[in-house]
Amino acid sequence: MSHQLLAAGTNADAISRETVFWILAILATGAALTMILVRRAVHCALMLAVVMLCLATMYAMQGAPFLAFVQIIVYTGAVLMLFLFVLMLIGIHSSDSIVETIKGQRLAAGLAAIGLMVLLSLGIGHAALGPPTHQNDALNGSGNMPGIAQLIFSTYVFPFEVTGALLITAALGAMVLAHRERTSPKPTQRDLVARRLASGHLAPDPSPGVYALHDAADRPALLPDGSTAPESVSTALAQRLVEDEEPPAVMKEVES
């Protein structure tokens, strides 16, 4: 039973498999093309997620369920999220301009890509590739996971150990690279209090909305003395202000 579950996806009949393949293929290709054409980085990340999920399904179709789940959990779930975190940290607004700075780069890239594609297709075309269908049972004879485990811990145990070391090294490296050296000693609580007493601004600012007249996100908050707090409107919203639209009365104050 578990054997059959693990071998799931190999027992579907040919037409459905072919249909699923073509849908996934077109989806993946489209997502990849979109990925390289969009301007905003976040959109690119989302398209990459789509591609990865399609690929995960294809792994499952080819009798690699373990790999499919690892793809979703590790690749899409961890690696892509890591990308998004870094995006948020450093460049959510960063977008490329359409204009290409290096002369002939796009043309050369296109030519090289077409050339490589042709060559690889030629190579594949000449290689002897056979149908897989009746081999899936032999493939997962005792189950996919035990089979992979068998290989990892006997034939490929050395690469396994080495990649373990690689991961440790990568983690250490990331820590070292992202580390910020303090140029001044970390202020203790006593220092913070002293700073606050010296600034004259003793009490914390009231939480947002205390003096609010409106609760729209594009309206600034009011300060106790009646003035508006310009930082309370997100710059993303401030950027989206359409030029010829009459700004709301309070927004005018923000910009003045």
Partner: peptide, 10 residues
Amino acid sequence: VILFVIGGVG
């Protein structure tokens, strides 16, 4: 192959 080439162009 197609995905690889697209990634390369990107």
